[in-house]
């Protein structure tokens, strides 16, 4: 079950970026998986470099988060590209992000090649926790905690800050917001970058426990997509709940009837789309 929660935390980070961008800009960003993958690769590179340069290994968590944040610098230019078609049909926006998926796939191959990349030895630096017969790597708990913290932080950002109020205003009625003097292009740029950062940080955070490979982005899109559909498009709470549902459901399927591991998720997705098309949590928070 804890495995499911760990998986959920990862999914949440990736899906949260997707949700934020959809909630405000109404763009379903297929490239969110690519940001996640980029974050993973960049995280490996930066940590390997830092450790090689003599940084103390226990600092790797900070370096990973830093790498995710640094990488979010690709947000504004990508948003600039998307901005050219904000007034177009959503279908075009979806397609443009599909174009980004194709391009990022090769960008990763160009810079990092096809071989999997991993951080060999930092996973267990924070030790393991023994609970009865169970052994849990502390890092898993760190990731779960990071997921929860980021969820809380984003929630706080959106509900308690001036920035959050602006974002919600823009999400509710962009024209009105603009009429009231909100600099929409700047706001969109920031929101998008925040969305990218959630993805890249997510990718970077998970990497000590796994390895970066080329198709992780494309694979993740499908699951992140399941998360947002189940949770409800554009809702942060939905992303949180959806990630938990998908993660735990997968864990339960693996424990009880492994054959249903993947199929079960699609069945749930379709059931939700059919019964509650707006998702379990229609957009409220974002």
């Amino acid at each position: 079950m804890l495995g499911g929660v760990f998986h959920a935390a990862v999914l949440f980070l990736a899906a949260a970026g997707l949700q934020l961008v959809f909630g405000v800009q109404k763009i379903l960003n297929l490239a969110c998986g690519s940001f996640y993958a980029l974050g993973a690769y960049f995280g490996v590179s930066l940590v390997t470099w830092a450790l090689g340069a003599g940084a103390p290994p226990s600092l790797f968590l900070g370096i990973l988060i830093l790498s995710g944040v640094l990488l979010a610098a690709i947000g504004p230019p990508v948003e600039r590209l998307l901005r050219t078609i904000y007034d177009r049909d959503e279908s075009f926006q979806l397609l443009l992000t599909f174009a980004l998926v194709l391009m990022f796939e090769d960008v990763i191959r160009f810079f990092w090649g096809t071989a999997p990349h991993q951080l060999g030895s930092v996973y267990l630096i924070y030790g393991q926790l023994k609970v009865g017969a169970l052994t849990i790597p502390v890092y898993n708990l760190v990731v779960i905690a990071a997921g929860a913290t980021i969820a809380a932080a984003v929630g706080w950002l959106l509900t308690r800050t001036r920035f959050g109020r602006l974002v919600r205003a823009a999400a509710e009625n962009p024209r009105m917001a603009e009429a009231l003097g909100i600099d929409l292009p700047r706001l969109y740029s920031r929101v998008f970058t925040l969305g990218v950062a959630l993805g890249t940080v997510g990718g970077a955070l998970v990497i000590p426990a796994t390895a970066a490979m080329n198709e992780m982005g494309i694979e993740l899109i499908v699951e992140a997509f399941a998360v947002v559909v189940i949770g409800g498009l554009g809702s942060m709470r939905g992303a949180f709940a959806g990630a938990l549902i998908v993660g735990v459901l997968k864990a339960v399927a693996i424990a009880i009837y492994p054959e249903l591991e993947m199929l079960g998720i699609y069945v749930i997705v379709i059931a939700v789309l059919v019964l509650r098309p707006a998702g379990l949590f229609a957009r409220a928070a974002a």
Binding site: L81, I85, F92, F98, A99, L102, M103, E105, D106
Partner: peptide, 14 residues
């Protein structure tokens, strides 16, 4: 070639 196709798609869309 995927990059080229992605770029092409982006150009077409935009």
């Amino acid at each position: 070639w995927r990059f080229i196709f992605g770029a092409l798609l982006a150009i077409v869309v935009i």
